[in-house]
Each structure stands twice: as structure tokens, then as C-alpha cells.
Design a binder for these strands. Structure first.
Lengths: 216, 216
DNA sequence: AATTGTGAAACACTTCACAGCC
DNA sequence: GGCTGTGAAGTGTTTCACAATT
């Protein structure tokens, strides 16, 4: 049996979240013309332990050569496939306020792999405005555009009060993962992956670590 | 013996990072005039399990009444003390580009507990500009201002190439925790708490979870 | 009767240590 | 000889289940 080639057991979520770090590091190393790296080299560059790096790669099937190390170009391609970046998954941004606009500009300039292709807002002042090559659309057109463009990911940067409503609509429209910058817990079917980023919460835990000390 | 009142064993980092969520939820509940909540109520509101909530509170000494639940007002105050928010820890922002400016505006409007009091940049175009009530200073004045104002936290929103240099200066100036939005791993003494937020990495792991499916 | 507080069991993740392969 | 790949041990975190308390 055994489904997709080389994939073992259940893979820890945390391991998946390290893959993009490996990918970025390996791309840089490859671009310096270095063809082989060891897990020890990667440990130095990423701050993760060499054992952990080897184990993470092993979850997806082994890519190294014993006695030598890993081929940078091969591993970059393999990681891109594993992450699904060869599919050019499209993302939508909802919320073209200060934060949303900044995120869009940042993403448009750097992030070719997961491109933002549509931006929505409900403020008539903002609709029609251009952000880079994209024109802000009315949020009324959300479902339609998501379907037409085959958008599968969304970034949410709307006020707290609007977040749940928009998220439900995104979910109903078939969006598979949401990166939520609004300070609200989203209640969604479990087949939607939600990643929360919350400046307020982060600052408050920083206060704890600064005040009571002791990192770990 | 036993140091600060009521603090048990070693406290899991993950538990600390949940406290701000409890604090926010409890503040909302309290502001609705509700005086008592059970861990089951909080579980519904936060999405964490009731056992976990009780255990988290227990790490810091017990605050509930058996048979009744937790007093919202008391618990809010207690959490604020634990997190160190009664100290009004000041934060600096370094990098007044699109993202930095958006973060500053967001924080200035909402986050009274951990106020941003200074903003730095190295671009002469930006120095002297006002963001809300704050005037952007030259990054040359970083050490001086940090000491004068007693700033203990920093938010880093500079280009990748500049991040390590600025972070080292912040650390040398005595900053205790850094929230890093630059896509760079920071190498700093272990007594500086670093929390990384990286849009590019988040989008890439979202691609995985959308592509290969299965949430957990 | 209801709900906390908590040891013990279960689960998740990381590190150790070494066999296997180049 | 050097470095990967991996079971086994160790550590960290969550869930279970129930005694303690109001």
C-alpha cells in the first residue's frame, strides 16, 4: 500500500513549520554556489540541532548521502515540492488598511511562491485604489473572485469585529488556510487551517519574559 | 525559601503564551458585567480545554473557588501582575517603513499596556516624520534614547540585511526582549527573549497545510 | 451539586547514541 | 573517517480521572 512516496507515520506539525526555514537557508547556500551541506552546517545556520534536521528530512523520506551530506539543489527542489510551492497556490488579502497594505506590499515585493492575487475591502474610499499591480475590490465580490481565480489561501487583516464574518465567508467559498492578523479567535470547520498572528498577544508575552526573566 | 509568592515548579513557555489570551477574554467577559466564570466557560470562549486552563492558572497559584469558578475582576488583575503589565514596560520600534508604520499605528491605537514610546529609522526621508504622537528619530540615537527612556522591549521591522546589526545594538543597550518581523534568524545572548514573526515562512507552511490537507 | 486543583497516564517532540553506508 | 538515518531514552505538554472544597 503506502500512499504518496516516502512519507512516514504522522509528521509533527512543528516539523512542517521548520521546513520553510530549511528551504530559505538552503536556497541562500545554493546561491553561493555550495553544492553539498551537512546537517551540522545547517544546524549552525538555522539554530536547530543537527539531529532534529536529519529527523525532519527523514519524515519525508531520506535525501542525504551518508558520509557526504545533502545536495543543496536537490533538497531545495524536494522541499518546494513537499511544501506545495510548485503549485503556485494563490492568496487573497482581506482588509486594505495600514496593516493589510503593508503586508501586501511586503508580499508583492518578496514572496513570489505564494502570490497575493486579489485584495478586498468594504470601505468605498479604498475600493478601486491600486496596491502595486492589484486593484482593491469590494468585499462583495469575494466569493466570486475566489472561485474565478482558484484562490486557496487568505490573509485576514480586518478589524476584530469583522473577522469572524469574513472568515466564515472565506471558509464557505472553499479557502483552505487563513493567516489571521485580527485579534480574534476564529471558529471554523476543522478542515480550514488557521494560523494566528497577534501583535497584542506577542507584546504581552514579551512583557512576561522581560519582567520575570529566564528564557528557555 | 520559595521565591515569589505562589509560583510552582518550572512553568511551560506555552502556558505563558496562553495567558494573554485568557487576559483578553476575561477582560471582555468582565466588561459585560459577568463576575464569575468557570473553566468550562473559558474553554468555550478561548478554544483551549478546561483542564488546560485550570492547570495553567494553577502554575501561578490557584485563583478559583471550588464549586463556583473564577472571579473575573480578580483574575484579570492577577494575570496583569503575572505578565508584568502593571509595570508599563516601554517598547521601541526600529524601522519605519510600511510594515513598521502600520505596526506602530496599530499598537498606538490599541495597545495601552505595552506602549511604543520611540521609533527609529536610518532613512533621512523618514527621520523627523510624525507617526501619531511620536517623531521618528535617527537610529544613531538608539542607545541614548533606550537608556534615557528606560525602554526594555523592541519591535524590529527593518530589512533582512540590517536586522542582526540592529539587534546586537539593542541587546548591548540592555533590551530584554525583541519581536522580530525581519526574515532573519537573530544570534543574540540567551538572556534576550526573541520572538520571530515571519510572513514568508507562515505563507509557506500554509501552502503545505492547504496542499496536503489534514489539520490537527 | 458544581467546579476547582492535581497526581498519574497518555501523547508529542527532542536528544542520544550508534549502526549503516559512502 | 565522516555523516546520514533511526530506534530508544528523555523531556515537555496535554488529557484523564477523581479527591477536595465550597
Amino acid at each position: 500500500m503506502a500512499g504518496e512516496q516516502g512519507q512516514k507515520d504522522r509528521i509533527p506539525q512543528v516539523a512542517v513549520r521548520r521546513l520553510p526555514v530549511y528551504l530559505r537557508t538552503l536556497s541562500q547556500v545554493r546561491d553561493q554556489g555550495i553544492e553539498i551541506v551537512s546537517s551540522a552546517d545547517l544546524a549552525l545556520l538555522t539554530g536547530f540541532s543537527s539531529e532534529q534536521i536529519r529527523k525532519d528530512f527523514a519524515y519525508f523520506g531520506a535525501f542525504g548521502t551518508r558520509g557526504r551530506g545533502y545536495n543543496t539543489a536537490t533538497l531545495v527542489n524536494r522541499l518546494r515540492t513537499i511544501l506545495g510551492l510548485d503549485q503556485e497556490l494563490k492568496a487573497a488579502l482581506v482588509g486594505a488598511g495600514h496593516l493589510g497594505t503593508a503586508l501586501a506590499r511586503y508580499s508583492l515585493s518578496r514572496q513570489r511562491d505564494v502570490p497575493i492575487v486579489s485584495i478586498f475591502d468594504n470601505d468605498p474610499e479604498r475600493i478601486g485604489r491600486a496596491i502595486g499591480p492589484i486593484t482593491v475590490e469590494s468585499v462583495d465580490r469575494l466569493e466570486e473572485t475566489v472561485r474565478e481565480q482558484g484562490i486557496r489561501l487568505a490573509i485576514l487583516a480586518v478589524p476584530a469585529g469583522a473577522a469572524q464574518g469574513v472568515a466564515s465567508r472565506l471558509s464557505a467559498a472553499g479557502i483552505e488556510a487563513i493567516l489571521n492578523f485580527s485579534p480574534t479567535k476564529l471558529d471554523l470547520p476543522p478542515d480550514v487551517y488557521v494560523q494566528q498572528i497577534d501583535l497584542g498577544l506577542e507584546l504581552q508575552s514579551m512583557a512576561y519574559f522581560a519582567a520575570q526573566g529566564r528564557r528557555n
